[in-house]
Each structure stands twice: as structure tokens, then as C-alpha cells.
């Protein structure tokens, strides 16, 4: 039986005002340990102001083969983008 510490995904807020961003993963026995390890592995040079750790097993990911059904419907909805509409120059900035 494997006695490996579980895998955690690490997210770091690089600066105030930015969202947390996935930076990598690590093994740790529990959440507190994962935070300590994340500090040592991913922020040795002040790379962040806040760390999230999430058990990798708790992440639900979309499957690569679902790409079509998830994103293709957006293909024929170009009107969602502002450039779809021609506004005469005379109107000014809009």
C-alpha cells in the first residue's frame, strides 16, 4: 500500500489586487503542512502575498474531449464582442 502524502495544488496571489494563480503542486500530510511546504517551495523570493492550497483529489476538471460541447457554442455568437457593431466615427468614443 502506498504511504505517500496526498497531492495538493498550490495557488498564489502574486500582488495585492490580483487573483490567485495556480503555480504547481506538492505533497503534504495535511492542510497546514501543505501551506508550510508551499511557502518553502513556491515563495522563496517573495513571489506572493497569499497562498491557497487545495487537495488535488478535490478538483473536478473538464475533460479535453468535452472541448467542443463546452466552447463551440460561442463560435456563432460574435455579437457578444463590441467590435461586432459598427458605430460611426461621428458618434465619438463608445
Amino acid at each position: 500500500m502506498s504511504n505517500e502524502w496526498p497531492l495538493w495544488e498550490v495557488f498564489i496571489r502574486g500582488q495585492h489586487g490580483l487573483s490567485h494563480r495556480h503555480v504547481g503542486s506538492l505533497h503534504a500530510s495535511d492542510a497546514e503542512h501543505a501551506l508550510q511546504n508551499a511557502r518553502d517551495v513556491y515563495t522563496r523570493r517573495k513571489e506572493g502575498v497569499s497562498i491557497w492550497v487545495v487537495p488535488a483529489a478535490d478538483i473536478t476538471a473538464s475533460a479535453p474531449e468535452d472541448k467542443g460541447s463546452l466552447y463551440d457554442p460561442a463560435d456563432d455568437k460574435v455579437y457578444r464582442h463590441p467590435t461586432f457593431f459598427d458605430i460611426p466615427d461621428d458618434v465619438g468614443a463608445m
Partner: peptide
């Protein structure tokens, strides 16, 4: 550690 984690995404364990 960064590299072990990259290898593990391919289905091999750290141990």
C-alpha cells in the same frame, strides 16, 4: 520538487 510534480502528472508516483 517542481520536476517530480511535472513527472507525476504523467501517471508515475513520487515513491
Amino acid at each position: 520538487l517542481y520536476l517530480y510534480c511535472a513527472a507525476e502528472t504523467l501517471g508515475v508516483s513520487r515513491d
